[in-house]
């Protein structure tokens, strides 16, 4: 007699797998940490996404991080329309956060986002994307900034990987 495992793993049996959805749309917030990354996500945002929203970190340098002048984290993000948004609120309403940093650019702003992720128990995925003229040392520097905060750190050689990743994650 055929075993149950043998019977249920046939192509014929695969037809009977339940086709109802097994997940809900995920709210993925993608944040560009620097100007070159912002250009990339501007382009990405033109594609249709299920639950992805795109932001720019309002300041690209830790020295001038908003909050130092008393604004707090409520004025830390811009959406692509230029509206200022509350970082903590955006993180809180997300399923996970993706930060994008161009190799060699200042990525120290990630620490603020990471704090918000920690406070709300959200996973932070960091992507280092190529930048024209960037050196291996630039990549190393970017990774050094991001490593302490990212649950997954990815160095991508081509910018279209971000779209592939977001699609794979059902963003």
């Amino acid at each position: 007699m055929q075993s149950e495992s043998a019977r249920v793993t046939t192509a014929q049996e695969a037809r009977y797998r339940i086709q109802y959805p097994n997940s809900k749309t995920r709210a993925v917030k993608i944040i560009a940490l620097d100007a070159p990354s912002a250009q990339i996500i501007d382009e990405l945002a033109k594609q249709p996404w299920s639950g992805a929203t795109f932001f720019r970190a309002l300041s690209f340098s830790a020295e001038s991080t908003p909050g130092r002048a008393g604004e707090g984290l409520s004025s830390w993000l811009n959406d692509l329309a230029g509206r200022t948004l509350d970082l903590v609120g955006e993180v809180a309403s997300s399923d996970f956060i993706v930060v994008v940093s161009a190799a060699g650019e200042d990525a120290r702003a990630v620490s603020v986002i990471a704090d918000a992720c920690t406070a709300h128990h959200k996973t932070l995925v960091a992507l280092v994307v190529p930048r024209e003229g960037a050196t291996d040392a630039d990549v190393t520097a970017s990774m050094g900034h991001l490593r302490p905060f990212a649950r997954m750190l990815v160095i991508a050689h081509d910018a279209d990987y971000i779209a592939a990743m977001l699609t794979a994650l059902r963003a």
Partner: peptide, 20 residues
């Protein structure tokens, strides 16, 4: 199954090795 139906999978951030 003989060929995994990946239209139904739900990957997470730590699956980036597979995604890449």
């Amino acid at each position: 199954g003989p060929i995994c139906d990946r239209t139904k999978e739900n990957l997470v951030g730590t699956d980036n090795g597979i995604i890449m």
